[in-house]
């Protein structure tokens, strides 16, 4: 499949979001002081997205743009609509407003912790083989994906319900990587995974982002991960939404306001991203 991405090589450092409309009622539209994404350089264009279930508005009038190669982190308290936003983006739920992916965009989606029956007779190999057929990809694609998430092939003979949380999440990332996606949507991939598993997963994601020009959209509660690996942060809260560079959004004042409770989050800016 042809992709129109190649003319936009050097824009990976451009913050993903150029504009965000806040709730229509009181707060004025806020311009994020950033370079405008080059025309045609955006992979995702969301305009006035509104999602409601049974007359309860979950997302209201949300507009943003994601540049190719950007890494956007979505944060916010529980119930702010982060997962709903992703489900709308992949076309799984009805919404108002427009969601425009660049033509030919292929995405990989890694869901929040799935509840898999322990005795479900589906192995890791069954799942990856299914994706190979669906994406019309070759076996080498699967091997490469496994390598990138650092998952050994022996693990694949296990039924997916009996894998450890970390193994299964990395399997899902590998699944998402088969078929050469342009965009990865990751919904709290490390939730419910123990600390070593989280580290392996985060390392795998970091490698992907550094070595390939995959655009990533990541929902995370781990603010230090967000701070160090995201080029832009979209913070969803019930009343409003904020976005901008991590340094601008992840301030103690903003976080206290959004989460409704004082949050002491200290960044160590010595790492440099």
């Amino acid at each position: 499949m042809l992709r129109g991405a190649d003319e936009d090589q050097g824009s990976e450092a451009v913050p993903a979001i150029v504009r965000l409309n806040l709730m229509a009622n009181e707060v004025p539209e806020r311009q994020i002081p950033s370079q405008e994404a080059a025309v045609g350089g955006s992979v995702l264009d969301v305009n006035r997205l509104t999602v409601s279930f049974d007359h309860t508005v979950i997302l209201a009038d949300l507009s943003f743009t994601v540049a190719r190669g950007a890494s956007l982190a979505v944060i916010g308290p529980n119930g702010a609509g982060k997962t709903v936003l992703f489900r709308a983006l992949i076309g799984a739920i009805a919404h108002e407003g427009t969601i425009r992916w660049a033509p030919g965009t292929r995405f990989g989606y890694v869901p929040q912790k799935l509840d898999i029956e322990r005795d479900l007779p589906i192995t890791g190999r069954d799942l990856l083989r299914a994706k190979l057929t669906i994406a019309r990809a070759r076996k080498e694609d699967a091997l490469r994906a496994l390598e990138r998430v650092d998952l050994r092939e022996e693990v694949l003979v296990k039924p997916i319900g009996s894998m450890s949380g970390g193994q299964f999440q990395r399997l899902l990332v590998a699944f998402a990587l088969i078929g050469k996606p342009d965009v990865l949507l990751l919904d709290e991939p490390a939730a419910g995974v123990d600390v070593p598993g989280q580290e392996a997963l985060n390392a795998a994601l970091r490698r992907l982002q550094q070595e390939e020009a995959i655009t990533t959209l990541l929902i995370s509660h781990d603010l230090s991960v967000v701070y160090h690996y995201a080029s832009t942060v979209l913070c969803l809260a019930r009343q409003q939404a904020y976005l901008g560079a991590p340094q601008a959004v992840l301030t103690p004042e903003r976080l206290s306001e959004v989460y409704g409770t004082p949050i002491s989050f200290h960044f160590h800016d010595d790492h440099g991203r």
Binding site: G108, P111, I122, L127, A130, K131, I134, A135, L185
Partner: peptide, 14 residues
């Protein structure tokens, strides 16, 4: 198989 593991993953896989 994919749709029974996760409906969303299935949709995202086309």
């Amino acid at each position: 198989v994919v749709s029974l593991v996760s409906n969303e993953v299935a949709i995202a896989s086309g």
